[in-house]
Design a protein around this nucleic acid. Structure first.
Length: 188
DNA sequence: TATGCGATATTCT
DNA sequence: GAATATCGCATAG
């Protein structure tokens, strides 16, 4: 696993996120991420460690799940050494397994919209605060795995939906993948 | 297909 | 009391 958060964000493209339910597996291939790095004013960790963002300060590879806009959860992967505070937001998945389950959680049949966007991703994977602080590299119900398929060409752009540090190119995505979020022009 | 807007609750000021 | 790493629906073209 890469030693710094920006590299981790790029590295995670093409990897698999798996949620093992007792009776069913839900899994998707990561196609879009954003890095929230050390000293980044747009990062939740920027103002220091709090009860809410504590998981960002765990050893790299832990889940930080938080509630946003009063409606949705978003899933991050911590990216630095213990106590530092940085992470990668998972923005979109290409559904692989448990499609019916995802459709049920999301309330839509459209496979394209199941996990295209951070809030949708968390809903489709059935993730919430229960998974905050989980080690994604250890055996358990939620983990990261290698993909059978290699990542295609990786694009880089500015991040979406932030007010500070808007010019930094820290969003990574697989080019020409229909499951990437955002308006079409932002994929370039 | 593109744009605009309201909903919603937790956190921190 | 303000801000927020968003989404879905409505409307227009």
């Amino acid at each position: 696993m890469p030693r710094d958060t920006a590299t981790l964000a790029r590295y995670l493209i093409g990897k698999i996120l798996v949620h093992d339910h007792p009776r069913e597996r839900i899994a998707g291939r990561i196609v879009e991420t954003e890095a929230y790095v050390i000293g980044d004013a747009a990062a939740h960790a920027f103002r220091g460690r709090t009860a809410r963002n504590n998981s960002l300060f765990l050893e790299r590879g832990h889940a930080y799940v938080y509630f946003v806009y009063g409606c949705w959860f978003a899933v991050n992967v911590s990216g630095e050494s213990p106590g530092v505070g940085a992470g990668v937001l998972l923005r979109a998945l290409e559904p692989l397994e448990g499609l019916r389950s995802m459709q049920r959680h999301r309330g839509t049949q459209r496979v394209l919209d199941l996990a295209r966007g951070p809030g949708r991703l968390a809903m489709a994977m059935d993730l919430d605060r229960r998974f905050d602080g989980v080690d994604l590299c250890a055996p358990g119900p939620l983990w990261l795995g290698a993909s059978r398929r290699r990542a295609g060409t990786i694009g880089v752009s500015v991040r979406i939906g932030i007010a500070r540090e808007v010019e930094r190119k820290l969003r990574f995505f697989e080019r020409d993948n229909a499951f990437v979020s955002g308006p079409r022009r932002m994929r370039a």
